[in-house]
Design a protein around this nucleic acid. Sequence first.
RNA 1: GGGCUCGUGGUGUAGCGGCCUAACAUGCCAGCCUGUCACGCUGGAGAUCGCCGGUUCGAAUCCGGUCGAGCCCGCCA
Length: 636
Amino acid sequence: MTEPTRPSVSPEAAFGLATPYRDVTCGELRAGDAGREITIAGWVHRRRDYGGLIFIDLRDRYGLTQVVINEAEAPEATEAANRVRNEFVLQVVGTVARRLAGTENAKLATGEVEVQARKVTILSEAETPPFYINEPDAPVDESLRLRYRYLDIRRRPMVERLILRSELVKAVRDAHHRAGFVEVETPILLKSTPEGARDFIVPSRLQPGSVYALPQSPQQLKQLLMVAGMDRYFQIARCFRDEDLRGDRQPEFTQLDLEMSFVTEERVMDFVEAMIIEVSRAVVPDRPIQQLPFPRIDYNDAMERYGSDKPDLRFGMELADLAPGLAAIGAASPESATGFRVFDEALAAGGRVKAIAAPGMGESSRSQIEELVAFARRFGAKGLAHVSVQADGTGHSPIGKFLGEERVAAIVKATSAGPGDLILIVADANHELVADVLGRLRQELGLRLGLADENVLAYCWVMHFPMYQWEADLGRWHATHNPFSGVVPEDEVLLATKSGDPYKPSHEDPAGRARAMQYDIALNGWELGGGSVRIHKRELLETSFALQGYTLEQMHERFGGILEAFDYGAPPHGGIAMGIDRWAALFSHQTNIREVMAFPKTQSGGDLMLGSPSSPDAEQYSELGLKFVGVETANG
RNA sequence: GGGCUCGUGGUGUAGCGGCCUAACAUGCCAGCCUGUCACGCUGGAGAUCGCCGGUUCGAAUCCGGUCGAGCCCGCCA
């Protein structure tokens, strides 16, 4: 205590919003405050000048308060107010008064009162802003918003989204602390982690020629924390991936990362589900959760029924398999099973013929259908057949002449389509392609047709992903999600190759049928997160890595730390990572995560406000032992 | 790496071969106005149409390139 005479300040005062510049914020005055002498500060939202009487709407993040300056009563304040323009920062001293009867503004929370100014001080002047800050609905060019992000954030919608995000993170932290989790920070300067995406690299000055990698996720570290006995860890972690951007992908983003020891799949999912419910109710209490407990769907079922591993369950429009109905009718001719060659070929090659029924689209014009065909082709479909269901329930189709009435009727029946619906059919030898194209069509049309209630939160689990996908060009298995994911216990025996040597994998290995203890959480058609129970036994991990084509040396180079740690007593453990940006975006009814990030990057990875990335200066180059050798281009 | 869309006063848009000496709204500036809240009224300033090149008698308008933003495919969970 160097200042023993300094009076102590109460926490109420220290925590309060009052400051030497203001007694109240712009959002809190009510009728009951009438008569108070106050000082208030904020930005000029709008100014209305009557000559002799000036109204100023003063704004801060808490709200808007009307200030009145009456020339007859406050000539000096009027002089200042005459100079005031939009976005000036003011301090106003005055009296809170009820507004004259009939002049209240019901649109404002503070609309019953106004501040009658005695003194107006200009704390800061302002240029005319490059876009409207006081009109939340005015369209603004994206690059202007990003270049002047500090002005964009003054706008109400951004304020609300950033506050919502803050509440989301707070609710997440509260839930985890209550469940005994410890929040541990992990390094940003890290070693390359085997996630599959490109790393961001940071050159080392102390060890020239060496680099750090920014974490794609704290995956290995959280497993090490389990070995370390932390038991329950979580982190709101910044992650980095050097891949091309999308509306739902930024080069740096935030994950809720968590890991638990001595758990099964069930136990992790139980906690995560309860946590999600609690967070949802805390942050968006008005939005109903469609189904509790969350539906749990096997990966294979999700692909069969929705054509997606992140199905939007807010609407039906499930994929229907047309093959059984067509087969029941028998061959159309000795040469053709269905009468339509495209279907015949897909089925003969072991592929699929599947369809969805788009409600009310039966009257679609030729060009509207063409647009759907183009959509399907973009995702690899060779074509898109359609059947429109007539008022009498019969199907009408350009391919009807090949299929015949009976088969068209079978298609209508298989899709449960009704009058006025449009059935869209994809046939291909590749069953994954059929699912993918129809899944994308389903999602697109579900949104276009307004089938998805925008208010509903439809969470669901997707489980039992295949452990591996075959990479034909590399001749090896590749972990579908995380290379540490454990295998479903009864499938452990499948972690083998036909050849018997795990280093000689082939497409026909039993490993291809093994299911992972892997679970994804989807929300309204977005992948919100994914996790797994990990392999904690070293031998099993080595087998799994071998199947993925890693030799022992490669294994040690990339995963040496964790392999060694596993020799010192690793508990069974599992966890999950969830996209905080996506969650906040979905809570805010946004389709782009930029809208819930304070300072996002453009699609080309730049920051228009600060001008990053930028060239290092000469000194930085030499300190780091780096030299720019140019970029290879097509024409040299 | 590729496809598509956009780029016109401060902002948002219109104009899409000559009628453009570029229109509208809003903002901005000045004046008037004592109860508005997207205040109102009057007047004024403000863009050579992202940039470079080409086609043409003539280009904001057509073509090519380039830069920037967005959406998407590939990529990425």
